[in-house]
């Protein structure tokens, strides 16, 4: 269990580093896909199977497809593969290092609990979603609908004439 945890953690950290270091936008997006998939594996190790499956379906299957479509559309208009350049590398790294150090210095003490493997997480998650989190669940659905309509209206193709 611990080996899988370290494996997935290292994989996701390396893939997140790839998002930063790749110069081609397509490679950065595929690196983010690797990072999200290894995070899903990490969630399975942490016994959050519900979130892991949602992560694979929505993040890796939905968001990445949208971003890849965006890269395809924008690079088709330009006619060449998209390269990304960096700006303010020194100030940016200093600020990110500062944030990392501040987070490390202010981390809370996390005590360990070993939860039992016998509990049915799917059943519990469904029950919680339909009882205590019913309002948030329905609001999330309404938010997704609004976002869908808004994105379609924003990105619709209009002829200039």
């Amino acid at each position: 269990m611990s080996i899988a945890l370290y494996f997935f953690a290292g994989l996701s950290a390396a893939a997140a580093l790839g998002v930063l270091l790749f110069r081609q936008v397509l490679y950065a997006a595929l690196s983010l896909l690797a990072c999200l998939l290894s995070l899903a594996g990490l969630y399975i190790v942490m016994q959050a199977e519900y979130v892991a499956v949602t992560q694979i379906i929505i993040y890796a299957g939905g968001i990445l497809v949208i971003i890849l479509f965006g890269i395809m559309i924008t690079s088709r208009l330009a006619g060449k593969p998209m390269q990304v350049s960096t700006q303010y590398p020194v100030i940016g790294s200093l600020l990110a290092l500062l944030i990392f150090c501040a987070l490390v210095l202010s981390q809370p003490a996390v005590t360990s609990h070993t939860s039992d493997f016998s509990t049915n997480h799917w059943q519990r998650a469904g029950r919680w979603l339909m009882t205590e989190y019913a309002l948030a669940f329905e609001s999330a659905g309404v938010l997704l609908l609004i976002c869908l309509i808004g994105a379609a209206v924003t990105a619709i193709y209009q002829r200039e004439s």
């Binding site: 996701s12 950290a13 997140a16 580093l17 998002v19 930063l20 936008v25 997006a29 990072c35 971003i67 965006g70 890269i71 924008t74 998209m82 990304v84 350049s85 960096t86 700006q87 303010y88 590398p89 100030i91 940016g92 790294s93 600020l95 990110a96 290092l97 944030i99 990392f100 987070l103 490390v104 981390q107």
Partner: peptide
């Protein structure tokens, strides 16, 4: 922590909106 710092770094230093 590392993911958050890398994300902030990407947002700050990359020039492409995607």
């Amino acid at each position: 922590f590392l993911l958050f710092a890398l994300g902030v770094l990407v947002v700050l230093t990359k020039r492409d909106a995607i």
